[in-house]
């Protein structure tokens, strides 16, 4: 999967307590579902996300915090295959994969 040219970025990390891959949302919480991530579309917004990530790391909520590229397709479409796999799970265990959006509640 080629990296698409896009300025769009989202903030991700792993939850300290259980290691779960999570994404920072517009609601100001960390969600396991990549499609819920808040998308930064400008460098200024990306910087703001990085600051939020640093604060969450300092507050011991998340670790391995990174601002990552997403394609113009939106938050559910990380640009790099590594992040696609992080978002949904190992490609060799479909039974263990998670959806990009929350299940219907």
């Amino acid at each position: 999967m080629a990296q698409a040219k896009s300025q769009n970025k989202i903030l991700t990390g792993n939850r300290l307590r259980n290691g779960e891959t999570v994404y920072y949302t517009a609601a100001g919480v960390w969600s396991p579902y990549v499609a819920e991530a808040k998308v930064a579309t400008t460098p200024e917004e990306a910087d703001a996300l990085a600051k939020i990530g640093a604060a969450a790391y300092a507050a011991n909520l998340v670790i391995d915090v990174n601002v990552i590229d997403v394609t113009p397709g939106g938050a559910a479409n990380p640009a790099h295959i590594r992040e696609v796999i992080r978002a949904t799970g190992p490609t060799v265990r479909a039974d263990l994969n998670k959806p990009v959006t929350p299940p219907q509640r």
Binding site: N14, N18, G19, E20, T21, I63, D64, R82, I85, R86, G89, P90
Partner: peptide
């Protein structure tokens, strides 16, 4: 904590510890 957890075989990978 990181060097302590590594001494005990605990890594962080893509999806979890």
């Amino acid at each position: 904590f990181r060097p302590l957890r590594l001494m005990n075989g605990l890594y962080l990978q893509l999806h979890a510890y």
